[in-house]
């Protein structure tokens, strides 16, 4: 394994704050917020980052890997500035999420799971985002967009370009 990662001073303070929310015998419960912190810190959760979290909560690193690999929102590899996730579960499929995905793929010139060369966008599919009555839906970073059309998608991307 590569050299061990350590949180910066600032992140360490936040980690301590997160851990203080849990009784000592349940330190392991802090694993999800700490993985979020790691993702903010390094952009993705590498095995070294998992090991860092494991040291903080005092467990075997594979137990952190169990959690980190279970949740698709933890990036296991470097991603672009914006992560676009098109819901592809059945209700959204019925409202035409396939077209939305293909449009994004053509427009950005990348396929599922890839990142644009300029490092701005990563394209993904996601399971149900709990907005089935408003499909097709797209998650841009942490913001959910509903009732999508290809035109609306272009607007959203343009908004990001400007921002």
């Amino acid at each position: 394994m590569a050299t061990p990662l350590e949180f910066t001073e600032e992140a360490r303070k936040r980690a301590a704050e997160i851990l203080s929310r849990y009784p000592d015998e349940y330190r392991k419960s802090a694993v999800v917020p700490l993985l979020h912190l790691a993702q903010e810190e390094w952009g993705f959760v590498s095995p070294e980052a998992m090991a860092c979290v494991a040291r903080l909560i005092g467990c075997s690193p594979v137990k952190v890997a169990e959690i980190a690999t279970f949740y698709p929102m933890f990036n296991k590899e470097p991603v672009g500035d914006h992560v676009l996730a098109v819901c592809h579960t059945l209700p959204c499929a019925l409202t035409g999420c396939g077209d939305i995905f293909d449009h994004l793929s053509d427009k950005l010139g990348i396929r599922l799971g890839e990142t644009t060369e300029d490092g701005r966008f990563t394209l993904r599919k996601s399971e149900c985002l709990a907005a089935c009555d408003r499909g097709p839906v797209l998650l841009v970073n942490r913001k959910l967009h509903t009732h999508l059309t290809t035109a609306r998608v272009d607007e959203i991307l343009d908004g990001l370009e400007e921002g």
Partner: peptide, 10 residues
């Protein structure tokens, strides 16, 4: 008590 094994992925 060595906990080397886990279930990864979903």
């Amino acid at each position: 008590g060595t906990s080397e094994l886990g279930v990864v992925q979903m």
